[in-house]
Design a protein around this nucleic acid. Structure first.
Lengths: 209, 209, 209, 209
DNA sequence: ACATACGGGACGGCCCGTTAGT
DNA sequence: ACTAACGGGCCGTCCCGTATGT
C-alpha cells in the first residue's frame, strides 16, 4: 500500500513505545468494557502484537491493569484536574471552568458515554481486588490533596469562605463530580450532566465568602 | 414410569418461589461481582438448582439481569428512598435521616463494601447495553420524581427555599449520594462515607430558607 | 454408512458409558505420553466429545488422572496380577506363568513398547504430586498384599521355602518385575525382557525348598 | 561502538563454563520434572542467562536433552557404578557396598525422592524419541559391560559361582537395582528402599559359590 | 418444573523458538 | 557470546446455552 516499501525497519524495535502502545490500548478497552470485560486478545489486535510480545512486557492481565492505573489514569487525573488547580488563585472558578470545559471539549463525548476512567475502575474493582483498590485510592488521594491545597490557597486569597473544612469539602467535591459524571452516563445525555453540574455549581457558590 | 402421578409435592414444586430464589441469588452475585462478573453457575450453586431449572424461568443471562433490575433493585430503591420521603414534611431532614440510617444499620457494611446496586449496574452496563440502560434509567427517574415531589412539598411547608430548582436539585442530590457511596467504596471505610456525606449535609443545609 | 439412518438416538445419552470412554482414552494417552504429556484435546478427539462434555464428568485434568489410577489401572493390576495368584497353590509357578504370558500375548507389544502403566505413572508423578502418589501407592500395596498372601499359601503348601521373609520378598519381586519391564522398554526389544526375566526366574527358583 | 576491544573480561566471557552451567541446570530440572516437564525458562532462571545465550549453545530443547544424557548422566553412571567395580575383586560385595552407600550418603535423599536420572529419562522418553533411546541405551550398555566384566573377574577370583550366565545376571541386576529405586520413589521412604534392596541382597548371595 | 449430559467457543497463560541488536 | 523484544501456537479451563429425559 505504501509506495516506499521495504527499507523501513519492519518493527522499530522500540520497547518503550511498544509498552506505551499496550498501555494505551488496554486503557481504552478497560474504559469501554471494564477490567473484567477487557479481553487481552482485543488489546493484542489493537496493538498488532502477539501473546508472546505482551507477555514479555506484562506478566499477566492483572499486572497490566495495575500499570494502567499507575501509568495512564494517574497521569490523566494530574493533567486534567491537578494541573489547572495548581496556580489558580480562585479554585472554585477553576473547578467550574474544568466542568464547563468537560461539556465543550470533544472528550466530553467519551466522558459522558463511558464515564470517568478512575471512578469506573474503582467502582468495579475496589471490592474485588485489594491491589487495585490501593493503587486507585492513591490516585484519589493525590487528587484530594490538590483540591485541599487549592481550597486553602483560595481561603488565603479571600476567594473561599475561611470557615469551611477543606478536607471534608474536597472529599465531597470529588464525590459530587463523580456523581455528576455517573448521572450523565446513565442517561447517556449531555443535558443530564449539565443539570447535575449546575447543582454542583450552586454548592460551589455557597462556599464563597 | 411411575403410575402414581401428581399429588406428591415432589420436592416443593413452587415455581414462583423458585423464581424469587433465582432473582435473589442473582442479585447477590451481581451486587458482588457486577453483571459481567456474575456467573450463572454460581447462581445455580446458591439456589441449589441446575441449568434446566434456571433456563426454564429465564431465557438467558441477560433476561435474568433485566429481571433483577425491574423486580429486585427497583423495589429496593422504592423501600429505601421513596417510602421514607412519601409523607415527610421536611424532605431535607428525611434525606439526612436516611443517610444517617445508612451509617448505623447492618446493611451499612454491605453498602460501603459493595456500593449501591442501582448505581453499580448503571455504571457498568449503561454504555454497553441499551436494554439495561433504559430499565436502570427508569428506576433513577422514579427516584428522581420522588425527590422532586418531596422538595416541592417541602417548599409548601416552608422547609425548603422556594427559589431553588427542584428538578436540578433532585438530580444533583442523586449524584451526590451516589458519589458519597462511591467514595466510601473506594476507600472501603465507613469514615470516608461519613466525611463525604457531611459535605452533602452542608449542601442540604444551604437549601433551607 | 449404516442403512437404518435417522431414528437411532444420535447420542445414546449414556453417561456412564461416556465416562468410561473418557477414562479409557485418557488411560491410553497417559500410557503413551505420560500424564504431563497427555493432552486433554487428544482425549477429546479420541472420544468424540467436546470440552464441555468432558468438563461435566471431570472437574479438571488432575481429577481425570486420579480417576484413571483408581478406576482403570487398579483394575488392570487386579485382573493381571492378583486374579491369577488368588487360587494358585504354587505361587512361584504362577508368577513365572504370568511373565511367560506377558511374552506371548498380543499385549506384550504394548507392555514392552510403553511399559507398565502403574509404574510409569508412579515414576513420573510420585515426586511431583502427593495425590497421585497416594493413589498409586495404594495399588502397589494391594498388589503387594496379593503377593504376600500367595507366598504364605505357598509356604503352607510346601512350594516355597518357609524361612523367607514374605514381605521383603514380595517387595523385591515387585521391584524386579518392574525393573525387567523397564529394561525391555529401554531396549524396545522382547529379547531384553526375556533375558531380564530369566534372571528373575533364577531368583524365584532360589526360593524353592 | 567502543574502540577498546576485547581485553576487558566483560562479565566472565567463558563459553565452556557457561555451557556446563546450562547442562547442570538442565540436568537438575530434568531430574526433578522429567524432560517434558523441564521448562527452558526455568533453566534460564537457574543459570542467569537469557534465551539467546542458551540457544547459542544448544540449537533446541531436544539437543540440550541429548547433551545432558551424553555429558552429564553418562559420567554420573561411570563414577557411581563403574568406577567402584573396576578394580573390585569381589563384585557382589562391591555392588552391595554401593547399595549401602546409597542409603547413607546425603544423595540418598535425592535418589529416593527423585529416582535414578538415567532410568527416569529412559522410562519417559524411550518410547517417544529414538534419539533419546539410543543415547540412553548406550549408557545402559556401558554399565552392563562393567557388570559383566566384574562378574567374570569375580568368577576367576572364586567369588562368584562359575555356572551363572554373566550377561543375563548383569541385566537382571540392573533391572533389580532400578526396580528397588523405583519402589522407594513410589513410597517416598528410605525404608522401602532398604526392604527392596535386602531382597536384592538375598539374590546376590545366591550367586556365591 | 426441573435434572443431567453435553456442545462449542472463547479466554488467559505458558512456552519454545527467532531475530534484531550489542 | 550474549541480551532482550517479539512471534505464534496450543493448552487447560471457564462458561453460556441446548437438548434430552423424567
Amino acid at each position: 500500500m505504501s509506495p516506499i516499501p521495504s527499507d523501513e525497519p519492519r518493527s522499530e524495535r522500540n520497547p518503550e513505545a511498544t509498552r506505551q502502545r499496550i498501555l494505551l490500548a488496554a486503557f481504552e478497552e478497560i474504559h469501554r468494557k471494564g477490567y473484567q470485560g477487557m479481553r487481552v486478545d482485543d488489546v493484542l489486535r489493537a496493538t498488532g502484537l502477539t501473546k508472546g510480545g505482551l507477555y514479555h512486557h506484562f506478566s499477566n492481565k492483572k499486572a497490566l491493569g495495575y500499570a494502567v492505573v499507575e501509568q495512564v489514569i494517574a497521569g490523566m487525573i494530574d493533567r486534567f484536574w491537578l494541573e489547572p488547580l495548581r496556580d489558580a488563585e480562585d479554585p472554585l472558578a477553576a473547578i467550574q471552568g474544568i466542568l464547563r470545559h468537560l461539556l465543550e471539549a470533544e472528550l466530553a463525548q467519551e466522558m459522558i458515554e463511558l464515564g470517568c476512567p478512575l471512578n469506573n475502575l474503582a467502582q468495579e474493582m475496589s471490592p474485588l481486588d485489594e491491589g487495585f483498590r490501593r493503587r486507585l485510592d492513591r490516585v484519589f488521594q493525590q487528587w484530594h490533596q490538590g483540591l485541599v491545597d487549592a481550597l486553602e490557597a483560595g481561603k488565603r486569597a479571600g476567594k473561599v469562605r475561611s470557615d469551611i473544612d477543606s478536607q471534608r469539602t474536597a472529599t465531597f467535591v470529588q464525590g459530587a463530580i463523580e456523581g455528576c459524571i455517573g448521572m450523565a452516563k446513565n442517561a447517556q445525555t449531555k443535558e443530564r450532566f449539565a443539570t447535575c453540574s449546575a447543582g454542583l455549581g450552586d454548592y460551589l457558590q455557597s462556599l464563597r465568602p
